[in-house]
Design a protein around this nucleic acid. Structure first.
Lengths: 327, 327
DNA sequence: CTGAAAGCGCTTACAG
DNA sequence: CTGAAAGCGCTTACAG
C-alpha cells in the first residue's frame, strides 16, 4: 500500500474501497498517526487556519468575539491564529504580514484606533486572501464587515429615557471622528427629533471613553444654567463615571436622574444601581464574522452579495433608567 | 542567483556577502516577497507557532493571560494558535491533536475542569513537544507549571480581616477537590491558627463559584447561632453574592461586616462598596508561561531546573474590608 | 480501485 | 562566497 492510498483512505476519497479504508484507519489509530498538516498545506494550498487581528485580548469585548469566532471555526475544521496590535498601526501591519507568511485561508480584523493607512489591507486583497472586518471597520474600502447598529441602539436608548419621563436628555459621546461614536450621536439626535425635542448643543459633551471623562462631563453638564436630568452615554465606562459623579453630588439615580450606557460591559450589571445599557451580542458578532469569512473562502465565485452584516443591539433595562417602576 | 542564495541572504547567513544581501533584500522589498512559512516549516522542522489551549476566551482571566502570552511570543517571533475546550475533556483532546497536527513548537495549557485523564498530555510529552501549564495544572505529572500562590493570598486576606478588627471570619470556598480552592481554604485555616483563632467548621461553606452560591452561603452563615462578621470568599463572584445578600439583609459593609474576595475581576472595583480582593497578575502569568515554554524550546538540554513558577498575589484593599479607615 | 511520479517552496549538507 | 541537489511529508493528476 502506498502513501497515496493511505492519504486517500484517510480523507474518505470516494474511489477507495471500504475495506481498505477500514484497514488504514485502524492502523492509523493503532500507531497514533497524526498527519503532518504542514506538508498537507504546502501541497494542497489550504492551511485551514484563519488569522484574527485585534487591538488586545485584554478586553472583554474582544475576548468574547474571539470566543464566537473560534467556536464556529473549530466546527468547520479551522484553527485560529491570534495577533494583537496594541492599538499600534505598525503592529497591525506586522500582524498582516505574519498572516500572509503563514498562508492563512482568511483574515478577520478589528482595526487599531490609529490606522489611517490601508495599504496592508489592500495587499491582502491583492493576494486574494478573504478578509472580513468587525466593529472597527474601514470606511469606503467596500470590504465585508460586521458591525452593530449603533444608530438604532442610541435611538432606542434615548427613546427609553424619554418614555421614562426624563425631560432634558444629554449625551456624553466618544471621539466622534470614529464612526462607532458618530453613529451613536446621530441615533441620539434622531430620537430627540422624532419626539420634537429641540437639540441643544450644550447638552452634548465629547468624552474619551473613560470613567474620568464620564465624571468630568457630568460635572460640566450639572453646572449648566439648565442642567439635564438624564444622560445617554456612548459606552459603559462613561456611564459608570456619570454614576460615580452623581453619587458624589448626592443626586438619586434613577429617581432624579437617568443613565443609559452602551456595550453591556461585565461590570454594568453589578453597580449600584445597576446600569441600563445596550448589549452588543459580542459572541454573535464573532460568529457572523466567521460565517461571512467562511462564505467567501468556500464560494467559487468571488462575488459576495451580502457583504455587510448588521447586528441588532439588545436593550438591557436595569435600575439606572427605570424611573417609573420605582416611583 | 539561486533560491539557496536568496534564502541565505534573507536569513542573514554569515557566509553571504554584504553586497548580495543588499541586492536580495532590496528586490524582496520591491517585489513584496513574503516567504512561505509553511514550506520553511516543513523543511526546517520549526513552525514558530505555539498552541494555547484554554477553557474559554469569554472570560477576562484567560483573555488577560492570552494578552501576556501573545505579546511576548510576538517579540520572539512566535505566532499563537488558540483553541477553546469549553470545559469539555473531549474538546481538550481534540485541541491537543490539532496542535500536534499543526506541528507547533510548544503548547501552553490551562485544563478543563472535567479533565481527569491525562493521556493526551502524555502523548505530547512522548512526542517531545514542550508543554507548560498555567493556573489549572495537573498534579503529579511533573510538568512545568505557572500558578498563583493561593495559599499565601488567602492567608494575607484573612490576616487583613483580622487586623481590621473583625472577630468571626467565615470562608465561602469553591469546589475543594480543585487544588486552586483547597489552597485558598488552607491559607485561610493557617491564618486563623497563626492568630490563635479556633477553626469552626460551621463557618466554612462550600460554594460553587457563583453569585448565587455567595448569596446562599451568606444566608446560611447569617442564621447560625453565632454568625460571622466577615467572610473571605474564594473568588470575586462569590464575594459579589455576599455583598448583594448583605445589602438585602441591611447589613452595613464594611462597618458591620467585612468582605474579601479573590481574583480582582473587572467588576470588583466598581461595586458599591468596592470589593477588596487579591490580584492574580494575569498578564504576568501569561508572560511567565511563555518564558518557561520558550526556555524549554530553546534549551539544548532537556533538563529544566526551575520548572515551577509561583506568582505572588497582590492584595487590593478596597472599601469592603476597610473598617478602621471609616470608623 | 490502486500505484508511480511529480511537485508544493523552502533549507541545508555538500561541493567547489 | 555561491551553486546543485536532495528532501521535508503530504496530495493529486495521470495511468492502468
Amino acid at each position: 500500500m502506498t502513501a497515496a492510498t493511505v492519504s486517500r483512505a484517510l480523507s474518505d476519497h470516494p474511489e477507495i474501497s471500504a475495506k481498505t479504508k477500514d484497514v488504514v484507519k485502524e492502523a492509523a489509530l493503532r500507531l497514533n498517526y497524526n498527519p503532518n498538516r504542514i506538508a498537507s498545506s504546502l501541497r494542497s494550498g489550504k492551511t485551514h487556519v484563519i488569522g484574527v487581528l485585534i487591538p488586545t485580548a485584554e478586553n472583554a469585548f474582544f475576548g468574547s468575539v474571539i470566543h464566537g469566532i473560534t467556536n464556529l471555526a473549530r466546527k468547520q475544521g479551522y484553527s485560529v491564529l491570534i495577533h494583537e496590535c496594541d492599538e499600534l498601526h505598525e503592529l497591525e501591519v506586522k500582524g498582516i504580514q505574519t498572516f500572509i507568511g503563514a498562508r492563512v485561508d482568511g483574515i478577520i480584523v478589528s482595526m487599531s484606533r490609529n490606522t489611517l493607512n490601508y495599504d496592508h489591507f489592500l495587499e491582502v486583497k491583492r493576494r486574494n486572501i478573504p478578509l472580513v472586518f468587525f466593529d472597527r471597520v474601514p470606511e469606503d474600502l467596500g470590504m465585508p464587515t460586521v458591525v452593530i447598529d449603533g444608530y438604532k441602539g442610541a435611538f432606542l436608548a434615548t427613546q427609553h429615557l424619554i418614555d421614562q419621563g426624563y425631560r432634558r436628555i444629554a449625551h456624553i459621546s466618544g471621539p466622534v471622528f470614529i464612526r462607532t461614536f458618530s453613529d451613536r450621536l446621530n441615533g441620539y439626535l434622531a430620537a430627540l427629533k422624532a419626539n420634537n425635542i429641540p437639540v441643544e448643543k450644550e447638552l452634548i459633551y465629547t468624552g474619551n471613553i473613560s470613567i474620568e471623562s464620564g465624571m468630568e462631563g457630568t460635572r460640566h453638564l450639572l453646572q449648566l444654567p439648565q442642567p439635564p436630568d438624564a444622560i445617554f452615554a456612548a459606552e459603559d465606562f462613561t456611564a459608570l463615571g456619570i454614576l460615580k459623579q452623581l453619587k458624589n453630588s448626592r443626586i438619586q439615580v434613577p429617581q432624579q436622574f437617568g443613565i443609559f450606557g452602551f456595550c453591556n460591559d461585565m461590570f454594568s450589571e453589578h453597580t449600584t444601581p445597576s446600569l441600563s445599557t445596550m448589549d452588543q451580542q459580542t459572541v454573535v458578532m464573532g460568529q457572523e464574522a466567521f460565517k461571512l469569512l467562511y462564505g467567501i473562502i468556500t464560494s467559487d465565485s468571488s462575488v459576495i452579495t451580502n457583504n455587510r452584516c448588521v447586528i441588532e443591539p439588545i436593550p438591557i433595562f436595569r435600575e439606572s433608567s427605570l424611573k417609573t417602576s420605582i416611583s
